[in-house]
Nucleic acid binder design. Structure first.
Lengths: 254, 254
DNA sequence: CGTGACATTGACCAACTTCAAGGTGCGTGG
DNA sequence: CCACGCACCTTGAAGTTGGTCAATGTCACG
């Protein structure tokens, strides 16, 4: 149980990104690299809105969330992070962070200092490519998220969320069908733009339909096909078919 | 009327970004610069999902929208663009575009070829800074948009949208209180994740309350304070105060 | 064993969508 | 220049989804 509960801890994901960073760092300055590793705990912040941009961080283990704060002090989670992800790329505008990064569990990060970033951008085509790629990819996933937020039903949102998580873990050579949710229901609800009760209800509904099995933070996906259908077609709530049939009947009668 | 109807046409916005691009381009290769200018018309696409990444475009005049396409063919508008904006920064991941850019009116763009982008990233600290800044800024505005989509009421969404547009035009030395909407109601609804009818109703409501004046594409903001209040506090629909009073009364009675 | 944080469940209601019908403005072709 | 058609926009009525409120349940930790 303990191994599953923190599957991403102490796991070092050798993504292209990290490889590139590391090899570049190794060749340029191997001693600095070690200094820049740091460990954080649940609820710790890596940086907060308005903090000066120190550089880019790569998440080595654990997980984190980023959120922005509205004028009236409300927080909104914009993304969850897993090992291999880059943290802090929001800081290039005015060398100030617009988001806060907070850890969801014990985690470690590796800092690539701003000066190093600058150097690498000049000297390493690989690094340049990797950084721009990472930012482009984030832009793309933001767009997908916006689409989801604005046009998906609650069930579709949750289904997408679970499938995305599954992909995250698969890509990191962990089980994509059984994993721990390192975030609370409140976090999920906030991220997906719905009420916490609705998250709970959708989980319950999926579970009842044998699509998932969920007990607090522990989640298993039992039926990927159903989840996928849920995202693409609108068969989530079975009422849809019924109601569209009803409409046809009504039309036929009038 | 005609001058107002296309305020951004033939207008060259000398933003930091464009300055930097242009000066760099001038110094490197002045002849290519002229070649790379191109004019498009309403409904033309600059590039589509899956197209090969040719480079970064700077919008010189006109306006455009970007949208992504979901698996089931539905489109979702992710952003509107105005003179000085960079187009195509979604293409660094795999040198392929994940979005389509389509013009809303006659517009012209200037291309910075991929090879030039690469060169400039190495040689020009200004360009590097400008590009990363632009991407970071886009990330920040995406986050704000997600927050808006997930937690704002319809009225708040429209209020934000209008205030954002107002800022866009002000920054370009155009009137921030009277401008043309170059997008259709359908586009607005799609962008804000609401039904076109709701957009219409909110416009009608704002107009009735003397907050805006809107006739088809022509829009005037009459009361910025009201719009701002709408975004921050929840005074949009006046029912809120009443209902919270009711709650207090109910609580007092029980 | 008690406390607090987190999660679930049910009942009710409001905001928003959907459906349907009609209005407005613009361009094109007669 | 008018009239037709089309695209776009508006408005009202009815129906749903999902939010809010309130109560209860469960787990972890001291």
């Amino acid at each position: 149980m303990k191994t599953i509960s923190q599957p991403q801890n102490d796991y070092y994901n050798a993504t292209v990104l990290l490889d590139s960073c590391m090899s570049s760092l190794n060749s340029s300055n191997i001693s600095k690299q070690r200094d820049s590793h740091r460990v954080f705990h649940r609820r710790d912040s890596l940086f907060s809105v308005g903090d000066h941009f120190e550089g880019i961080y790569v998440l080595r283990s654990g997980s984190a969330k980023s959120f922005i704060t509205s004028r009236d002090g409300e927080e909104h989670i914009t993304k969850f992070y897993y090992p291999g992800d880059m943290l802090g790329i929001d800081g290039f505008d005015g060398y100030m962070h617009t988001q806060t990064i907070r850890f969801l569990e014990t985690s470690s990060v590796c800092l690539i200092k701003e000066s190093q970033v600058s150097n690498l951008m000049q000297t390493s085509a690989d690094f340049r490519k990797t950084l721009l790629q990472s930012m482009s990819r984030t832009l793309a996933s933001d767009s997908a998220m916006m689409m989801c937020l604005s046009s998906c039903s609650s069930e579709q949102k949750v289904a997408r969320f679970l499938l995305d998580l599954s992909t995250v873990f698969s890509e990191r050579n962990l089980s994509g069908s059984e994993f721990m949710l390192s975030m609370t229901r409140t976090d999920i609800a906030n991220y997906l733009g719905m009420a916490i009760e609705t998250v709970s209800r959708v989980f319950a509904s999926f579970q009842q339909r044998n699509i998932i099995s969920v007990k607090l933070r522990h989640l298993s996906i039992l039926d990927f096909t159903a989840l996928n259908n849920c995202v693409t077609i609108e068969i989530c709530s079975q009422t849809v078919e019924k109601s569209s049939n009803l409409k046809k009947i009504n039309q036929a009668m009038n």
